[in-house]
Design a protein around this nucleic acid. Structure first.
Lengths: 348, 348
DNA sequence: CCGAAAAGTGAAACCGATAACATTTCCCAA
DNA sequence: TTGGGAAATGTTATCGGTTTCACTTTTCGG
């Protein structure tokens, strides 16, 4: 393997000191035009670029932000990573990815790895906050001593960091209100895991909405259904087989679009026609929503914009004396066919 | 922001030299037990970990592999990134992601950034090879002087690097043969862009298969259709409206599953029943294939395993004097409903 | 034509580790 | 006791830059 030319090589060949080479590279104005030209020529000739490692060592930074999330194969997190990537790129930073899988906690190993690598900031996305709050805040506090920390998290979690919060109230309210407007009264919620703060928050927001609109909040309409298609299939089967068909809900709201995909498949297998026999609303507005049959009405939490804000705030926080604060990003309902809106008002 | 303790702090407090601290950290056996204990205690007390930047500078490496791909939002590349991540993780490396978007070329900026960051290796995935072969090989050769290079590429591209090749012959052959077995004679190919080597290779493999099986290879059955759902919709509409219904193909093979999604939507919109009126086979075997309606038969190129091999070979190549060579990964046809196989033999 | 401020440049310390080499300490056989 | 080799530890150069500070050269008003 070749050896890259170093600043010394350039300095020697240009007949100047390394300091001058640095000045030329950094576009320092305190260099005579003649010198600049001469040095630049040597730089170009050797395609010299300063070593990142040396710069990092010197500056005690890495120009790298860590993004910690459960899995990138989940499209919600995929979108977060993508948006974070471009926002970081725009600011001359790069992203170091950490996948924690289903591991809900921030492990001590992760914390020390982040510090060790002199990350310029860290963004947590996903349900890290489902752990014991004290442990979590302790870990965040420790991290916060070394780098700015941001989380994309449910509202009112009040972690001691930059909290980019999704609007889970509207995330529950929008679909319920929409279905109510369409005449639905028995509405079920499928998805997530009730052990997770994330879901229970969504779930309770959902129940709250039902009560506000004076709709039945039968616990049988409120089922754990994991986060993917298979669990969606199983959950809807479990829920319906436990109920008299006359008591079946007429609409189902799911934790995310993957669960909705599974639910739709299972319902069709049971011979139901969608959305006539059952309205469905998903969450995340993923790319395939417009291409399911029927196309899937979904809530968009705008993960891209949350990730963008997070990265921006992280980079800003390095400059200013960062404080912990929260930004709430609104939710949007994207109406397609699966809720039956195109069929008009439906039943009493 | 806190300052991490350095090896000097530890050495001073433990009353030893930095060399000894290094030895303790590196589990060097040449340390008296008493000394080890004393040093370890100080290390633990301060939660000391050596600085990555300093290690990198010293070792002239970064413990980082670059993964260059068009976009992570495309699930094919998403799977590659995911697999590369875990394989690297397993080997104590991390991944630095570069997204090139539709930019087909390896830009000189990218090359120098890779060198500048002392990447331990680089994996290219996607259609970088669509550019002028000489430029490409020049860039790869330059890169190859500084780090091992691997590509996940079509076969017989013969780049001077580690080539992990997908089995595009079977990728074309498997669906054509399967459809032929089911009785189809007029089979169309939709997708990609004929400007891309990737597609034209797939396309010509497809044509070759048609001829081998003595099936019509009408150019009208062979249409540019981009890489996503929208372009799939448009392409199938364009193709069919240019043909007498009696000359319509009875089956469509698409460049990938996203295009297939668009095709299916458009065909349904036109009132066709799938798969009775038109059989569809996609490519990539993405997670949603089992959840479309009808579920989508698809070719799996096993991107995860290709990424895994690539990372493994890159890390090996650092040790041995790396050579350029190729590994071909086979393709698999995953039969579901959209090809109509479950309906049995179909027509003469 | 002189002197002071401004502009340009270089020497050297430093960032935080590693590793080759040097030195000290220890133990045991002669 | 002492000499010698192994074990333990320290010294120092090095990785490739950046930055401070001091020094030299210009520039220009008086």
């Amino acid at each position: 393997m070749n050896i890259k030319p170093t600043i010394y090589d350039i300095a020697r060949e240009a007949g100047v000191s390394t300091a001058t080479v640095t000045r030329v590279v950094r576009h320092d104005p305190h260099v005579k035009e003649a010198t600049r030209l001469k040095v630049q020529q040597v730089i170009d000739a050797h395609a010299y670029t300063p070593s990142i490692s040396a710069q990092n060592l010197n500056g005690n930074r890495s120009r790298t932000l860590a993004v910690v999330l459960p899995v990138i194969s989940n499209l919600y997190f995929n979108r977060i990573l993508d948006a974070a990537y471009w926002e970081a790129e725009k600011n001359g930073c790069c992203i170091r990815l950490f996948q924690t899988m289903e591991n809900q906690a921030i492990s001590p190993e992760l914390v020390s790895e982040l510090i060790r690598c002199r990350m310029d900031g860290v963004l947590f996305a996903g349900s890290i906050w489902s752990e014991d709050r004290r442990d979590l805040n302790a870990a965040l506090e420790k991290l916060g001593k070394y780098m700015p920390v941001a989380t994309i998290c449910p509202p009112d979690v009040s972690l001691e960091c930059i909290c980019i919060q999704s609007d889970l109230v509207n995330c529950s309210r929008l679909p319920v209100r929409h279905l109510h407007t369409l005449g639905h009264r028995r509405i079920a919620f499928l998805g997530g895991s009730m052990h997770s703060k994330d879901t229970s928050r969504r779930g309770s927001g959902f129940l709250e909405q039902l009560r506000k609109m004076d709709l039945p909040d039968d616990p049988a309409y409120h089922v754990d259904a994991g986060y993917d298609m298979e669990s969606g299939e199983r959950a809807v089967l479990r829920m319906l087989s436990g109920l008299e068909p006359t008591h079946w809900p007429t609409a189902i709201v799911t934790f995310n679009d993957l669960v909705a995909l599974g639910v739709m498949k299972q319902l069709k297998k049971m011979g139901l026609t969608l959305p006539q026999d059952m309205a469905i609303i998903g969450c995340d507005n993923q790319f395939f929503c417009a291409y399911t049959d029927p196309s899937l009405t979904s809530v968009d939490l705008h993960p891209e914009e949350m990730a963008q804000s997070a990265v921006r705030e992280l980079l800003l926080a390095r400059e200013s004396s960062s404080r912990s604060f929260a930004i709430v990003r609104d939710a949007t309902l994207v109406v397609r066919e699966s809720c039956g809106a195109h069929l008009g008002y439906r039943r009493l």
